[in-house]
Nucleic acid binder design. Structure first.
Lengths: 331, 331
DNA sequence: ATGAAAGCGCTAACAC
DNA sequence: GTGTTAGCGCTTTCAT
């Protein structure tokens, strides 16, 4: 490249005005067929790529949606991100991922960096604790979708599920299966702890004798933490017969540690994970886990944002997509 | 928000010209201290976020670098992406991830979508086969870094390693350890197959009796494919005593399948992975694998691009960062 | 050290 | 259906 082509160059080469070039590219229906063909031929021949920066500035529409993920992106959100990306691409929008890496004041800085690009909407994933950030996001006046959680008072829209109810469901399941000395292996993020809370609540309702011990590990959770976590739990509570792990990676670690110790799963120890990552079904024993429909979250979030950007109203701005307990061999 | 604030609003509120506001924000040294404080106070108070779209358009510098990843992003590139993101953020650049999701003509469309935003540079990860895309990228005239591979004639700059040599090293290692009936479990992407080629080449040099069978599986590779792959290999070649898997996920599947079949690792079967993902060290037995320094790739790529964008020359535009064979218990 | 003028490349709004 | 004009919000450039 010597100097990037502009729409004016194309216009000159095609012998038309630059407005016609713009229309031929962006609103082909509003141009006669002959014109369209002539212009697009020049575009193809020159390899012209329109400058979206300029277009965005003028039209105040960036065709860009930002997703803000927790500092360390594990495999957990992958399904959602892929669906989000695809659904947006199909509608002519691009996804921009904001990922931290901004030092100690990360959250505010990250949001600032994202808002500078003037995205048409933002998808949040359990970040944004700081009231400062929330205020700033609100005053940006763009559609926001919060995900992976449920609250009565979202910033704007929400597509999620109840983490408490997940804990309750797993607890009831283990109780029904006859386990009686449960323990929890839990990431230290807010949502994971909400699951633990639900679990304990249900345990009380069911009249479980012991209060389940909770072993907290720093997120993002790893297999190694699962192994060490089970070891620690068994040290302190040797009679433990069931472990609910707030991620499949933790559960895999627990499975491996149990096997190393000669503990039979599920007979001597029940293991339940969360996420239903692609390896869960193929483990030995296959992992019983909680499935979250990340694809649906991503698609719905995309839909909500695009609808709002394009002036359609969103029927159900707070959507609980639930979850499902996938019963396999480990519990 | 009613209407987003502009630099002019801030200028009016601070009683200065908009140029002074711009300087106070972007080149604080070029403004007197009193001025700077006055302006930044207004900025803070109003929550003003500058419009990077406008700035990019005028200055022809987006402070944006794009990374183009294969359609399905596994955990493999995570380390690199994180390092890239962080290194860019520290230098005041933002990372934008391009991810496919654009239908059958994905590659060209993805590149087009990325180039429309006029990024200052592009980091490629083993995508971009189409000559069309390569031509278009070249004519965009921006710095490009290819990664995760080695070639004598890169598009522009390159930070990678030799996939052939990885195959050779693993083969030699297994030979030294006394294994004699090797097999390969290999993703169907180009780079994985390059590793297989290196492996077979070394096997020949070492005078290995059998030519190692290769079982190909579609990328991105999964644990389930590892299990099924080992089953298939053992069916066809019951005497197999060593498997080189071109990803740690495949290796994990092989480990699980071996254990299910009562095959002792490493005594009856050696297993080698690739990637050294965070779970590799904690498996039972711990996984022998090939480590690639994703952090270094990401940091170097960021450095190269920023250096070029800011007019500094890059000393060693083709950099082989090598790899290391991490010897653990599985082989 | 600060300000005024001009313009980046595109599209909204309006003419014809 | 096509063209003209103006301006999005910022920064470059030049003047003071």
């Amino acid at each position: 490249m010597v100097q990037a082509l502009t729409i004016h160059d194309i216009a000159r080469l095609a012998g038309v005005s630059s407005m016609t070039v713009s229309r031929a590219i962006n609103q082909p229906d509003r141009v006669s067929q002959a014109m369209r063909e002539r212009v697009l031929e020049v575009v193809r021949h020159t390899g012209f790529v329109p400058n979206a920066t300029a277009g965005s500035l003028r039209s105040a529409r960036a065709r860009l949606v930002a997703a803000v993920l927790p500092t360390l992106t594990g495999p957990v959100f992958q399904e959602m991100v892929r669906a989000l990306n695809q659904a947006l691409a199909e509608r002519g929008y691009q996804l921009m991922i904001g990922q931290g890496g901004y030092g100690p004041d990360g959250e505010d800085e990250l949001l600032h960096a994202v808002l500078r690009r003037r995205p048409d909407g933002i998808v949040l994933t359990g970040i944004l604790r700081s009231p400062n950030s929330r205020r700033r996001l609100l005053s940006a006046g763009i559609p926001v979708v919060e995900t992976w959680d449920l609250t009565a008072s979202p910033l704007d829209m929400l597509v999620g599920f109840s983490n408490e109810r997940i804990g309750e469901a797993v607890c009831a399941y283990l109780h029904r299966k006859g386990y009686r000395v449960p323990a929890l292996l839990c990431g230290d993020d807010e949502r994971a702890q909400r699951r633990a809370k639900g679990f304990k609540h249900m345990a009380q309702l069911l009249g479980w004798a012991v209060s389940a011990p909770v072993h907290l590990v720093p997120a993002p959770t790893t297999l190694a933490q699962g192994r060490a976590g089970l070891a620690a739990l068994l040290d302190a509570h040797p009679l433990t017969d069931a472990v609910f792990c707030t991620s499949d990676m933790l559960a895999l670690g627990v499975l491996i540690e149990a096997q190393t110790r000669g503990l039979a799963v599920p007979d001597q120890l029940a293991v339940v994970g969360l996420g239903d990552l692609d390896f869960a079904a193929s483990l030995q024993p296959a992992l019983t886990t909680v499935r979250i429909d990340g694809t649906r979250i991503g698609q719905t979030a995309a839909q909500y944002i695009v609808d709002r950007v394009e002036g359609r109203s969103v029927d159900q701005p707070i959507l609980d997509i639930g979850f499902s307990l996938v019963e396999r061999a480990s519990a």
